[in-house]
Computed example of a mutant assay.
Amino acid sequence: MLELIRRIVKCDRGATAVEYGLIISLIVIAMIASLGNFAGSTQSMWNQVSNKITSSTQ
C-alpha cells in the first residue's frame, strides 16, 4: 500500500496535461482577440471601398 501511495505522489502526468491545457486556452483566447480586431479593420476597409464606389457612380 505504501508503494502505491509513493507512485501516486511521484506521478505528474495529470499536472502536465493541465499545464498544456492552460497554455492552449491562452493561445486560443489571444487568437480570438486578434481575429476580432482584424475583422473590425477589414469591415472598415470594405465600407470605405463601398462608399467610394457608391459616390463615384452617382
Rank of each mutant, 00 (worst) to 15 (best):
I32E: 01
A39F: 01
R6Q: 13
L22R: 15
V9A: 14
S25P: 00
I27M: 13
L2V: 13
S34L: 07
I8E: 15
L4V: 08
K52G: 05
A30W: 04
A30F: 03
T42L: 11
K10D: 07
L35I: 03
R7H: 11
G14P: 01
N37P: 01
S56G: 07
G14A: 07
I5W: 02
G40N: 04
A15K: 15
E19S: 12
V18H: 10
T54C: 04
M31N: 05
L4W: 06
R6F: 11
Y20E: 13
M31H: 05
S56M: 10
I27P: 00
R7V: 03
T42H: 06
K10E: 08
K52R: 10
S34Y: 00
E3Y: 05
S55N: 11
G14Y: 01
A33T: 00
I23W: 06
A39L: 02
S56P: 02
G36R: 00
N51H: 07
I24F: 03
I8F: 14
L2T: 09
V49Y: 01
A15E: 14
S25I: 14
Q58A: 11
W46Q: 11
N37C: 06
E3G: 13
I53Q: 03
I24K: 12
W46F: 15
S55K: 09
R7C: 09
A17Q: 09
T57D: 14
T16G: 08
M45H: 15
T42G: 06
I27Q: 12
I29D: 01
I53N: 04
T54V: 10
Q48H: 05
S41P: 01
L22Y: 03
G36K: 00
G40Q: 02
N37K: 05
L26A: 12
V9W: 10
A30Y: 02
A15I: 11
A15P: 05
K52H: 09
S41M: 01
G36E: 00
L4H: 07
E19D: 11
N37Q: 06
S44K: 01
I24D: 04
G40M: 06
A15T: 13
M31F: 13
L26W: 12
E3K: 09
S55Y: 09
K52F: 13
S25Q: 15
A39D: 01
E3Q: 12
S50A: 12
E19W: 14
I23T: 11
M45S: 12
K52M: 13
E19T: 14
G40H: 02
A30S: 03
S55W: 08
I5V: 08
S50N: 11
I29F: 07
R13Y: 10
L22W: 02
A39K: 01
G36M: 00
S41A: 10
L2W: 07
C11F: 14
N47D: 11
L26V: 06
I27K: 12
G21Y: 04
A17F: 09
K10F: 02
C11T: 10
A33H: 00
S55A: 11
T54A: 07
A30V: 03
R7K: 15
G21H: 04
R6M: 07
A30R: 04
L35G: 02
S56R: 09
S25H: 12
I27N: 08
L26P: 00
K52Q: 12
Q48W: 00
L2S: 08
N51I: 04
